[in-house]
Simulated scan of single mutants.
Amino acid sequence: MLVDSHCHLDFPDFAADLPGVIARAKAAGVGGMLTIATRVAKADTYRAIAEAHPEVWYTVGTHPHGAAEEPDVAPDVIARLADHPRCVGIGEAGLDYHYADAAPAMVQEQVLRAHIEAARVTGLPLVIHARDADEHMERVLADEMGRGRFSAVLHCFSSGARLAEAGVELGLFVSFSGIVTFRRSTALRDIARQVPHDRILVETDAPFLAPEPHRGRTNEPAYTADTARSLAATLGLDAEAFARLTSANFHRLFAKTQPKAGAPA
């Protein structure tokens, strides 16, 4: 079974039929979904979704698009909110300089560093958002890793080859979304081939970035299967082997998703 390592099940796109969305995912061979936080203030929303659906885990964090709304959330607050059996990660947090009206770089960096500290304190992996910020992101990650180790994933990877290389050197995972299926994503597929197999994850980033052949539609976790087939072919793996690989990688990174010894699977 596949795992959608990054989706946003709290978004309005899914409000009318969330059970149906999850059922379609399971029918497509996607047995687990990680719904990702965009605001710390909405932690109760993510928790409620995960508590209602055993296939779903969640994270706590502030997306860089919301950094100006939550600039001062302390690491210990994030850590306290993450102390729940279904909360398995921190974020997504990061740097995004794509839009002119984005939060100031200094604020985004401040929020990112607070989330890195929360990841250290909790031992949970950080979900990193990086867009049009490769050099700055590499500097922050290298600096923070020097202050103390933490685990993380560069999600929905669409950056340059150097950031992927730097992330792998720092021990990070790299997750690929439907972008990797697009006809013009030749360079991204080349990057995917260079990432060690034991560091690769697959995701939808639903409701955004639906893969081929669903491009232009609302993305949903079921479409993880389409991205997985495309990425497996890129890597020269059969679909079943790729599903086993990426699911094992997911559970190794998000270790809190693994059943405890003696507990029912």
Rank of each mutant, 00 (worst) to 15 (best):
98 H>S: 07
99 Y>L: 04
100 A>T: 00
100 A>R: 02
100 A>F: 03
100 A>Y: 00
103 A>T: 10
105 A>T: 03
105 A>Q: 13
106 M>T: 15
106 M>R: 15
108 Q>Y: 00
108 Q>K: 01
109 E>L: 05
109 E>T: 11
110 Q>S: 14
112 L>D: 03
113 R>I: 07
114 A>E: 11
116 I>M: 05
116 I>W: 11
117 E>S: 09
117 E>M: 11
119 A>R: 04
119 A>I: 12
119 A>L: 07
122 T>V: 08
124 L>R: 14
125 P>K: 13
125 P>S: 12
126 L>N: 03
130 A>R: 06
130 A>V: 14
130 A>C: 15
133 A>Q: 01
134 D>M: 05
134 D>T: 03
135 E>A: 14
135 E>D: 15
136 H>A: 13
138 E>I: 11
139 R>V: 00
140 V>E: 14
140 V>T: 15
141 L>V: 09
142 A>S: 06
142 A>L: 02
142 A>I: 01
143 D>E: 14
145 M>H: 13
146 G>H: 01
147 R>W: 05
147 R>S: 06
148 G>M: 07
149 R>L: 03
150 F>Y: 15
150 F>Q: 05
150 F>V: 10
151 S>C: 02
152 A>P: 13
152 A>W: 12
153 V>S: 04
153 V>I: 10
153 V>G: 07
154 L>W: 04
155 H>N: 13
156 C>R: 05
156 C>V: 14
159 S>K: 13
165 E>S: 03
168 V>A: 01
170 L>R: 02
170 L>Q: 02
171 G>V: 08
171 G>K: 05
171 G>E: 04
172 L>W: 09
173 F>Q: 07
173 F>M: 08
173 F>R: 04
177 S>P: 08
178 G>W: 08
181 T>K: 09
183 R>L: 00
183 R>V: 06
185 S>Y: 04
186 T>E: 12
